[in-house]
Design a binder for these strands. Structure first.
Lengths: 241, 241
DNA sequence: CGACGCGTTGAATGTTGTCAACATCAGTGG
DNA sequence: CCACTGATGTTGACAACATTCAACGCGTCG
């Protein structure tokens, strides 16, 4: 990862993540940097983009958390996945495509338009890897909901978030900022908030994690990862880069 | 959908599906037709491609069913999604990418190498729409597992399969061939085969469906779709084309 | 025939959801 | 400064949903 160019990889989590996915050349990095300077803020709980909208350009998340959400007619809600700094909104879609699910800001959000990768091979690579990772995470979500129990679901999701935030420099040693309520966690995990609450309590009691305010600490991510049997595809893709 | 060219859209479900996604020009259709002539057979239960393999080219499924499967260390199994005639294996991945999950043949399978879309704009469009649909289906699977109960999960999945097979001309009026055991259905739905069995019985009793041998009949797909509150994103994307 | 895969059934158990109440805290306006 | 409000977390009792285990029927195939 070259730091010769004058772009602030360290102060910009999104840029840091993309640089971690593949070697960005100076051009690509400065294109991203320029894009980031034209950023826009979206308030928490606002919709970033609606289901069924037409998508012409992808957005890059610079700061804050968003989520893709589906709401059933009777009010049941499912969070499909979370979008973190360095992730894209609508990157999968081809130009002019319908957006396949609503994206909502979970916190105040800072986004910019993702620069076109057309004349930047290294950006193109970074986008491709980012897409691949987000598919891996969707598949992991399916396995979580289909075959893990409440304890495992919570541990596995927190591990995933930790791995992802680590890439952007936003998690260290099992510690990171988790700006979610137990109810949102429940909506992501296919559980009720009551059950999430109870399960969290046992995870706290047995020393697996602590969570006060918005700071969460996983006592031993490695060990937890092994004990939950968390897959290694993410790591393989990240290292391949 | 032009049928002027000499390509057998009607006898080839895969071609029929792609033609239904977007208007294929004669060149694209004959490229697909040529590719289909160099097909390969894979026996049921064999692995089509292993997780972690390197993917250089996408495969097109001409006949038979496959599935992406994830198996946990302790033997629990989750079917991530099904791949039907006209679907692609490894289309999402960029060249040289790691395959993100094993693909297994559920029946004897006929596949061919998907022709490159580089110099066929209409193929490119078809592939893009196909990718978009498969993402929609992944998101639907997440909602199914996270927020629907056993009855709803079964109905919703069968409706999805019906919609998808309809595009390829393999389902008509709620009737299609379902080459799965109750156990495989359970692995896709995050349930046990015992519970799937019991739930199917009540669905049969109340007249929602019948299933004998491999033929399944949904009595009233429209009504069922409404009663389950099944989303319409698939339809929107298909119509957009 | 026997072995095997698949579907079916019953009884007991375990996991998760529901409902309702209360605790805590931050913010708001009187 | 306090009372009030709303969002979030916590708890208990109970019901609903789903799994487990074990057994048996039925057909196919060697």
């Amino acid at each position: 990862m070259s730091v010769a160019h004058a772009v602030a990889t360290d102060s910009n989590p999104a840029l840091k993540r993309l640089a971690a996915l593949t070697d960005l050349d100076a051009e690509a990095a400065s294109a991203l940097d320029a894009a980031a300077r034209r950023s826009r803020t979206i308030r928490a709980r606002r919709e970033v983009i609606a289901e069924g909208a037409i998508c012409d350009e992808a957005l890059l998340i610079l700061a804050g958390w968003a989520a893709r959400v589906r709401v059933l007619e009777d009010g049941r809600r499912q969070i499909l996945d979370f979008l973190l700094p360095g992730d894209f909104v609508g990157l999968g879609e081809h130009r002019g495509a319908l957006v396949t699910s609503a994206v909502t800001a979970m916190t105040d959000l800072q986004v910019c338009v993702a620069p076109s990768a057309d004349d930047h091979p290294s950006l193109h690579r970074a986008y491709a890897i980012s897409r691949a990772l987000s598919e891996v995470d969707l598949l992991a979500q399916i396995t979580r909901l289909g075959r893990l129990n409440a304890h495992e679901r919570i541990a596995d999701l927190l591990l995933e978030l930790h791995e992802r935030l680590e890439l952007a420099g936003l998690a260290v040693d099992g510690r990171f900022n988790l700006p979610l309520t137990q109810e949102l966690l429940a909506d992501a995990l296919g559980l009720t908030s009551v059950h999430v609450n109870r399960t969290l309590q046992t995870l706290r009691r047995d020393g697996t994690l602590s969570w006060k305010g918005r700071e969460i600490i996983l006592s031993n991510p490695r060990a937890l990862s092994r004990s939950v049997g968390r897959g290694s595809v993410r790591a393989a893709i990240t290292k391949q880069a």
